[in-house]
Design a protein around this nucleic acid. Structure first.
Lengths: 337, 337
DNA sequence: CAGCAAATTGACAGCGCTGTCATCTGTGTC
DNA sequence: GACACAGATGACAGCGCTGTCAATTTGCTG
């Protein structure tokens, strides 16, 4: 038979309400009582019934992680974030649910509403590119659902976790420049993603700092996918004066660039240096292995969720934490011959 | 203010209990009444409160998807299954939670118990290799938690989804044999995973059918990881008589084999044909692109969850559905020179 | 058209917990 | 030692739904 709060109360000779107080870490319980109750809970292996708690207390102990499965088809990046979010939720004894929320189409607000009404999450964790949709953020605020973001574009007032993507992009381009490259191309990600803008900004910053005038030919649009990387590379290789290095805004596109290089008979890194961004497992497994930017995705998920949970549990306002990146230099970039 | 079941009842001029009956698709409600209630629900945009439903009805409308994050670090395979499971749950208006359950160590039963006591899932979906741990299955049965499996090893009485892995492995090895290869090596996956056994069995079956005696040198142990593929390949390349083709039990290991081939100066597919299993996104992006077996992971997740949900909703006993595989012939395999 | 079984509907309690508010206890003050 | 006051504890109702079982209506039979 199930052990209920009432049973614990009887065992500890206190009222159910006092057990409830201990369970919820409330103030105004004497140390002696608290200890006694905790001991009883432990001894009886008491597990509060989540539905009862949620019904009576008008909160769900549920955090929803939202992702856009449209532009993010089952990426490892998301899986790692999810893992981190889950870990944080576990530590705070919250449950987590993952929800795809396709941003394409104009009914995503309706779908967000349905999600909230159906599941009553106490808060949500937003992952890119959902972090950047103003109407969605507005709706969450209207419905009074706290949220934390992983790498938000707008940074004022948002809590969660961020990385200095612009500095990272700048660092990787500087690496190419240090190898002697001058015609360095950039493949941009999906235009309206914050990540794309920052990475482009970092590229420009590095080029400008090296005194290289911007050559529009060298900056081509991609869409974060392998095939868009292939297409972008073909454009670049068709130029009269080919680039000697390509910085793609993510690893998938960089892989596409390498693929296209093979197609054109260009050897990487001898004829062309290629680098990416994200450090997917793929990056290490390519031949040659890809120079890229590593971000601690799992950690980032955990931090974002922790900020949200601190807020939910009334432990201060929550912050926007910045995590460091790391430049992974591998075999796809080399000194210009 | 929240619309409650009672409000719907008043609007439809019936008792709350009748609304409840309609909500739960119970029998013994006249068509006229049912229609009236449904109309009222629709008009008022009624959303039942999950916690109240779960508390009163003693069920959670929750399906937990279990995975082993030890041997499966954030793979796309799992992400796709998860997506399919989620879709099925949505259709049946169940929620889904994902839970890692590390099988290493001997306290996983305790952790399973905690999971059940803490969250009360109505059922669980098991993914490989969790499908194969007998003590875990036993415990689920003891605790009366129904489960469905994705690719279970034991097939008697288990519901869920399966693929004929042995036939798939045989098909891919037959493809190599048809290209004229005779010294075909195999890199085995983690020893106690069902998948490894079947793929090995399929390899043997194809070799035997071609009248090739088994050469123990050509069968080496791997662990489903990239680096284990590299290590296995090094072993194979060190043989006096090198294989001309390698069938690795998954794509990650196949990628490792290709990587090692690069290291040894072997050109794929000219000097060595390589093929894998799973058709991860990686496979298409390698240079050359990898010949492999595709399984419809997303679909498989959906089917497994659907079988479980049919069972939970009292719609028959649930089945073990077999899905087809497809051999993806790409550029990493070629006729022997 | 009485008589009965089956189908339909409703009354009511209670799932396991927490919010509200009342009560009690211990400490310090003069 | 009487009094004030903050801290600790408890009584009780009720969160929104469903299970149980009783009441009512319907349809059918002879």
């Amino acid at each position: 038979m199930r052990v209920r709060l009432e049973d614990v109360a009887r065992a500890a000779s206190v009222s159910p309400k006092t057990v409830s107080r201990v369970l919820n870490d409330e103030a105004n319980v004497s140390d002696a009582t608290r200890k006694r109750v905790l001991a009883a809970m432990e001894a009886m292996d008491y597990r509060p019934h989540p539905s009862a708690r949620s019904l009576a207390g008008n909160r769900s102990f549920l955090v929803a992680m939202l992702y856009d499965n449209n532009d993010n088809p089952a990426s490892t990046y998301l899986a790692e974030i999810q893992d981190g979010v889950l870990e944080a939720c576990d530590e705070h004894r919250y449950s987590m649910m993952v929800r795809p929320l396709r941003m394409r189409g104009d009914d995503f607000i309706r779908r967000l509403d349905a999600l909230i009404s159906d599941h009553h999450p106490d808060g949500v964790v937003l992952t890119p590119p959902i972090t950047d949709y103003a109407p969605l953020l507005k709706r969450l605020r209207e419905r009074n659902v706290p949220y934390a973001s992983v790498s938000p574009m707008q940074r004022n007032g948002v809590i969660g976790v961020t990385m200095d993507e612009q500095a990272a992009a700048r660092a990787i381009v500087e690496h190419l420049l240090a190898l002697g490259h001058r015609r360095v191309a950039h493949v941009i990600g999906i235009a309206d993603h914050g990540a794309s803008r920052w990475r482009l900004a970092g590229y420009r910053e590095a080029m400008a700092a090296a005194g290289l005038p911007e050559d529009p030919e060298l900056v081509v649009q991609g869409a974060f996918t392998f095939s868009s990387g292939v297409a972008a590379a073909r454009e670049l290789f068709a130029l009269k004066q080919r680039p000697t290095a390509v910085f793609a805004a993510n690893d998938d596109m960089a892989t596409g660039v390498m693929w296209a290089a093979g197609e054109y008979g260009l050897k990487v890194p001898h004829d062309l240096s290629v680098c990416g961004f994200d450090d997917t497992p793929l990056a290490r497994q390519l031949w040659p292995a890809l120079t890229t930017i590593q971000q601690p995705s799992r950690e980032m998920g955990k931090i974002a969720a922790t900020q949200l949970l601190n807020l939910l549990r009334g432990r201060g306002p929550g912050q926007l934490v910045q995590v460091p990146f790391s430049l992974q230099i591998r075999d796809s970039t080399a000194r210009i011959p």
